[in-house]
Simulated assay, not measured.
Amino acid sequence: MVWKLFGRKKVSTFDENIEAARAAGGGESLPVEDTRAAIEELSQVVKNDPEAVEIYLALGSLYRSQGEIERAIQIRNSLIVRPSLDRKFKARAWFELGRDFRRGGFLDRAEKAFEEARALGQSSSSIHQEMARLAAERGAFEIAAESYGQLNLPLPQAHYLVRLATDQFSDGEDSRAHRSLRHAIRAYPGAIEAWLEQLVQAYKSGSANKVGDILGQALEHVAPELRFVLFEGILQAITKAEIFKERAAGEETEWSHACADEKLVAKIIPIMECQAPDVLILYYGALFYLKINDQDNAQAWLEKSMVMLPDFWLARLELFELSRADQTLTPFFREQLTFFIDRARRVRRFFCRRCGLKRDQLFFNCPRCRSWHSIAFRTDISE
């Protein structure tokens, strides 16, 4: 019956919709208008022929991709209770139900659904990957890392080893945490999150030399388009240290022994100067100079970045801010200008190269499309 349906007039349309639905089931979001159209079309076909199991499964995945978890679950359950349903389709229905439960946050139910799918013969590798995701969402990072390693997926393996390390640092298990970070880098040398965590820990310990050594190694292994994450992460660590020191009022905190800004910048800048010309390296170098109030060098680096990319809005904004003290402004104009500059600095600077999601914080796995290491910097404000 299913194949007869696909042999009707709109063959290519239904095939394309099913492929889109399966892709959505893997965690990727489709454009809302496209998904809605597909849902309406598939709903009509299912209504006309309830035995079209493939289309029914695809429809459930489309509902899930739109966040309509209850409707997706209803579709899976309506298939599972069919007494004459083929075993392979029942396994698929249980598997997709597990994905629905996981998306809805019902992790225990998801695990049971995946076990049912396994018992009915669902692919062990697909089950294994879903169980790894479940472990990660439960915070069982060691299990998640081990599972991804068994699946030969080194990037997520490294990511969850870093998550494990941060938990170990929080629990005072520094030796174990450093081992986890080294393990992450061995698993995936380009693991930007592992290098960044090593940098932050070296910064916290007060060793500017160690920060420099780690940064030099990291820049050799990390993809060039991701190097800005290292510099952004260091600057965020400096800001955290400043906040904690101000609030501590002399009391000991985890940031009390952080590197002095002058020593840190003295180690970082020569390493940045050795890199191939890059607009973001110049921009972040200027920000490091501003941390130690070296406005002349900061201006020089910002001007170089503007030569490389005249439309780089944040570099232009910082240059404008540096020149503001030389301008004669009325109090009203100065107040309005300060307001607009502050608002401009809050514009989301990062985006996902794959789905376009904009964020104001670093991310290693896109919250929307779940792609790894897809973060990019918005050098063009129209991006």
Rank of each mutant, 00 (worst) to 15 (best):
G250I: 07
R227G: 04
V222F: 06
L314Q: 05
I234C: 00
L319M: 09
F339S: 12
K263M: 10
R247K: 12
K245C: 00
A223L: 09
T330A: 14
P270A: 11
M308W: 00
Y284V: 04
N293K: 15
E251R: 12
A300Y: 04
M272N: 10
N209H: 13
S323H: 01
Q327Y: 03
D326L: 03
L235W: 00
E321I: 07
A208Q: 02
I268V: 15
A237P: 04
F288P: 01
F340A: 10
D326R: 09
E225T: 00
D261V: 08
L280P: 01
A258D: 09
F231Y: 10
W313I: 06
A258T: 14
T338F: 12
F288N: 05
S205T: 11
A315H: 00
F333R: 15
D213L: 05
G285C: 07
R247A: 07
W313N: 13
Q299V: 02
L215H: 03
L337Y: 12
F312S: 01
S323M: 04
D261M: 12
G233V: 07
A248V: 04
Q299A: 06
Q236G: 11
L314H: 03
E242F: 05
V307T: 09
F340M: 14
W301H: 06
Q327M: 05
K245M: 07
L282T: 02
R316N: 04
E335Q: 15
Q299F: 00
K304H: 09
I214F: 09
V222L: 08
V265I: 10
P270D: 14
A266F: 06
K210L: 14
A298H: 02
H257I: 05
V222A: 02
W301C: 02
Q275D: 15
A300C: 11
F339C: 14
V279C: 09
G285P: 03
A325D: 11
A276F: 14
P224A: 09
N297W: 04
G212Y: 01
A218N: 04
I271T: 11
N293A: 11
F333H: 14
A249Y: 04
A258L: 07
I271C: 14
D213F: 04
F231K: 00
L219F: 10
E232R: 08
H221Y: 13
L317S: 15
A208F: 00
E220Y: 10
W313G: 07
E318Q: 10
E220N: 13
Q217I: 08
A276T: 15
F288H: 08
L280I: 09
I243P: 06
L302C: 02
Q217W: 07
